[in-house]
Design a protein around this nucleic acid. Structure first.
Lengths: 245, 245
DNA sequence: TAAGAAGAAAATATCGATATTTTTGGTTTT
DNA sequence: AAAACCAAAAATATCGATATTTTCTTCTTA
């Protein structure tokens, strides 16, 4: 009697489901950076056994979304300004090249997807500011737009690398909350990107994407510094325990 | 009585051991491209249970070294010219940037490691040609040299990406056997790389690394086409044992 | 009373057994 | 015969139980 009662949607394996949820919980910050991921809790949280849970963790560990230490289990990776900068600078390079290739291999479908996803994104930004929709809603559309920009880049490995960096940065972006930007500013920022790309102006598109990536990171870094002025990479094994016990 | 008799080196988890061996067997071609990885066989081959075996497979799947299909298990990824070209071109871009950054952040330790690893590599090439040492011996040193070239690049994510692409290409390189190159040619090729980098000549170093990566790929692609003119993605589970080599 | 040792508690890693799915191969029907 | 079924066999995915380690607590000793 493997899974009896709450058999979920067919066709999807328990591991996959756990993987998706866990990734989301890490990205969205529900599971705090640097916190230990205890099998007991995870098992009950996602309602599955140890084997698929471990499998999901192993996959995330391979992707770098959780850290693993032999015999000592898994934890949410800490956040640090250095890590953010590393992601940012690497992404500026990778995405710059990907955009160049995307423009060089432009197609009609590519343009359409950019325009369509921008439109949807713009509305999502407004709704997010208005509080009509939750953060996940915005994040999904933001991701789609950024994927669209480089979708005609013929190098799959490069596209996937960009996507990976994008996702890794998401955790930082969400840590930030909505900060002080207005909907208009955020929409404008993305319109600039769209326009440069659709004009097929490679140098301009590269400059804009690099700045877009950099600016966001700057703001995040600033907030991180303010929040935790001393150290963020911190290896403080000392209990950062929330409550007593 | 988890693992009784053949308890291997302490401190290493069963999953890790399996992961390492499995990766090696895939890279070296012991497990043929596109062949199914049956749990039964894997378990007995590596002498462990299903849980750690699955965990290792999950990790490799996340890294792209095995393919996974829900409910249908795992298989060795097929090889194809398109895949090789994708890896190659992406790597030309990534490694080009990494080398530039490495040169811009040159240090004494970096130079030393390049010189040292080149020396060791040169000997390994000679020994490989002479048949004194096996392929693994050469591969290890070749990998070390290529890692050394970009070791002073300050972007960890970029370095790791380059390394990932390097490893993915290894399978193709090994498929090739030693082909028609002489030891002298191979050593010369790498000396060119070392010299350009140590001269801190960014454009030249980039040109040389791109050509190095490209040439190897061209030769491999040629051999692949000759070997299997029709399709390479092919699902022939039959042993494609390399006769000589 | 701080340092260290020993034992208890908790957590991880792994196994063996089983429920579910997919694949295979022989039968029947048009 | 080709297509469509349907069992039997094989393979995958998952669970519950257990051995191993690590971590925490308490007690002893200098």
């Amino acid at each position: 009697m493997a899974q009896t009662a709450l058999t979920k949607q067919e066709s999807t394996t328990a591991t996959e489901a756990a993987l998706r949820k866990l990734k989301h919980d890490i990205m969205s910050g529900v599971l705090a950076p640097d916190s230990q991921l205890k099998m007991r809790e995870l098992k009950s949280r996602y309602g599955i056994g140890a084997t698929p849970m471990r499998e999901a963790l192993a996959q995330l560990a391979a992707e770098g979304f959780v850290h693993q230490r032999a015999q000592r289990g898994f934890r949410v990776p800490p956040v640090s300004i250095e890590d953010l900068l590393d992601i940012t600078r690497t992404r500026q390079i990778a995405e710059g090249e990907a955009i160049r290739l995307a423009i060089e291999h432009a197609t009609g479908a590519w343009e359409e997807e950019i325009v369509a996803s921008f439109h949807v994104l713009a509305r999502a930004i407004t709704e997010a500011k208005a509080g009509t929709k939750d953060r996940d809603h915005f994040e999904e559309r933001h991701h789609r737009f950024h994927r669209a920009l480089i979708s005609s880049c013929p190098l799959k490995s490069l596209r996937e690398f960009c996507d990976d960096l994008y996702v890794r940065k998401t955790r930082y972006r969400r840590l930030l909350g909505s900060y002080g930007f207005t909907a208009k500013q955020v929409i404008g920022e993305h319109r600039l990107l769209m326009d440069a790309v659709l004009d097929r102006d490679v140098p301009r598109a590269q400059a804009v994407i690099r700045q877009h990536i950099g600016i966001t990171a700057d703001v995040i870094a600033e907030v991180l510094r303010a929040k935790n002025p001393v150290k963020l990479t911190a290896g403080n094994n000392k209990r950062a325990k929330t409550s007593a016990r």
